[in-house]
Design a protein around this nucleic acid. Structure first.
Lengths: 142, 142
DNA sequence: TTTTTTCTTGCAACTCAGTTGCATTTAAGT
DNA sequence: ACTTAAATGCAACTGAGTTGCAAGAAAAAA
């Protein structure tokens, strides 16, 4: 893990008033350096041989989500993808695009989905937008 | 099952050129009369004692989704909710709202999410919008 | 620093929605 | 009615995520 990452991780944990442990640092570090949503298994792989137990990772994610450090970005094949929430506001996360051809998923930070403020008494606290189709590469080669 | 429902079911299967079987009719009937997304288990419950095997239901759903009769509306607690796609266009389904307080999920047919046509080379074939927050009832009592 | 307390971790066993293989049945075309 | 291709049921399986509990590690108190 890079020093810059390590520092950011420390800051994140401190500002959220969470205990600094090796497991949590490694997990946050993996997410920070990934720049894309990761599954529990992908987090383990990125940390490597000394990765914490999967239960620990799931429990850390639960804690991070409660502390608004991490978002549950989307589900694919019954599996959650997690990502740092630094690009999201509290109530609105960026859309995610999954290519039906190559299977890759991209974060569309630049594409904002305007939302009707008044929606008949519903108070929207969180929105999740999942898009499916062909990514630029696959649509060209098709 | 009402006669009107039975007739609609027959028509749906016929127009999709799918074999008319008891299982498929019962499943589509349940979805038609529900007017809301249902899980596999809820479909079984609504059909009752003579409900088809769960494998049959899953395989029927697969077929229906491929034939564009049914949508996979959203996932909640690792479980898919299915609904008839008659209120959806091919590429855009209505948003679904889940109340974090009472747990109910509503279809927001009237709330349309405008979508940017040009999104940098991405060809959007399908969009799924999940909203979370407080429903009218819960926001009043809070 | 040492002690105490509280939170975190690992392990093993579990849960449960959804899937797979295969034998049997059934719808639809001839 | 006969044939064939597709649909169904059953049992066993898969795999992401969960739970209970004992052991270990931070932070707080002494």
């Amino acid at each position: 893990m890079e020093d810059r990452t390590k520092h950011k991780v420390e800051q994140l944990l401190k500002s959220a008033r969470l205990r600094r442990t090796k497991a949590r640092s490694d997990i946050l570090g993996a997410l920070l350096e990934a720049h894309q949503p990761l599954t529990r298994e992908q987090i383990s792989e990125r940390i490597g041989a000394c990765a914490p137990n999967k239960v620990t990772i799931y429990r850390a994610m639960e804690t991070f989500v409660a502390a608004d450090i991490v978002h549950k970005a989307f589900v694919q094949d019954r599996t959650w993808y997690f990502e740092l929430s630094h690009h999201c506001t509290t109530d609105q996360c960026h859309p995610h695009f999954s290519c039906t051809s190559c299977g890759r998923t991209d974060c569309l930070h630049e594409l904002s989905i305007p939302m009707t403020a008044d929606s008949g008494g519903y108070i929207i606290q969180h929105q999740r937008v999942q898009l499916e189709g062909l990514c630029p590469k696959c649509s060209k080669s098709a």
